[in-house]
Design a protein around this nucleic acid. Structure first.
Lengths: 170, 170
DNA sequence: TCAAAATGATTCGTATACGAAACAACGCAT
DNA sequence: ATGCGTTGTTTCGTATACGAATCATTTTGA
């Protein structure tokens, strides 16, 4: 996981640039530290981070198709397919073909998987959530507002710099 | 390593929980989207995201030891060692043993690597930085303050739940 | 209707990512 | 100085992660 602290290329006042870098650095820190913590919690149950996330998610939401799972955990189908392979090998989940649409595969927790989900007391990301929850109401509202604004700006900039799909034929 | 002594349990009002989730979701979004963009920029130069980051970093800071590089990009030595392997294979960097401390390996850009660094116009994370820089001064100060508070809280909670190094013999 | 486009999932190749083990070189204490 | 713990790096095994290609099954459109 690479988190660059980039040298300034956009021209900004040095003080502002310092703040920008610090914001990037802190967001990266929060993200990576949270993943590390999830991994650590998972380890206690002989699971990987993503596997714990999947187990908890299926336990909370019930069966999901592979694509639905991919969307939820923000990973590609091929990635999740591999994760499910390994979980199936460990008898944590089963693949069941859908009757309605035979392209679809439902991922179901096995008894072992369910037991495991219930045995892990804390949620992935719980420490992160606890830290956020410790903010007072006004801070919470404010940071959420600014973060959403940031996300919106990123979206705009991406759309602005990414032209329409080129028509290429290799 | 056995079960944690007192797993932290939090119960929150539903409204607050929704905000907490949204904050987590947005931070994850900002991070993953930024990485995706870095990767996309890198692709245009036949590089991977991390490789572009390394090239830009060496160009900006000069030679670095492998450990120094690892610290900068927040990745383990073994990860960076692999990245450097592949970059060396592509003649982008060279490994040079330090004369002063023969354990140390300095990573140096080759001419080809330097040319590539200069040919890529934008920095990794630049879109992310631009979005942050578009905040007004007060928002910037505020989000930085709250993010730092969050990072501090996470640190405290981690220290609280991670006991001192146990004396174990596997 | 029926071929073509679209969708859901898997497979493959490659690149992170990380912890543990191995190894060499350094440095400190006695 | 010698022993021994520490440090810097690499190697190994395993698990993500993703894009491209593939396959089977819908769905669409003329």
């Amino acid at each position: 996981m690479v988190s660059p602290s980039t040298p300034p290329r956009i021209s900004l006042p040095p003080g502002v640039q310092r703040d920008v870098d610090k914001v990037v650095e802190t967001i990266v820190y929060l993200y990576t530290e949270s993943r590390r913590l999830t991994k650590e919690v998972a380890r206690a149950s002989n699971l990987t981070g993503p596997q714990l996330t999947v187990v908890k998610m299926l336990h909370h939401l019930g069966d999901l198709s592979l694509s639905a799972l991919s969307d939820r955990i923000r990973a590609g189908n091929s990635t999740v397919s591999g994760i499910i392979d390994r979980m199936e090998r460990e008898d944590l989940v089963r693949r069941v073909r859908s009757k309605e649409d035979r392209r679809v595969v439902h991922i179901k927790l096995t008894d072992k998987g369910r037991a495991l989900a219930e045995s892990v007391p804390i949620q992935p990301m719980e420490i992160f959530q606890a830290a956020i929850a410790s903010l007072d109401g006004e801070e919470m509202t404010t940071i959420l507002r600014i973060l959403l604004k940031l996300a919106g700006r990123v979206d705009e900039l991406v759309k602005a710099t990414t032209p329409t799909t080129p028509s290429e034929t290799p």
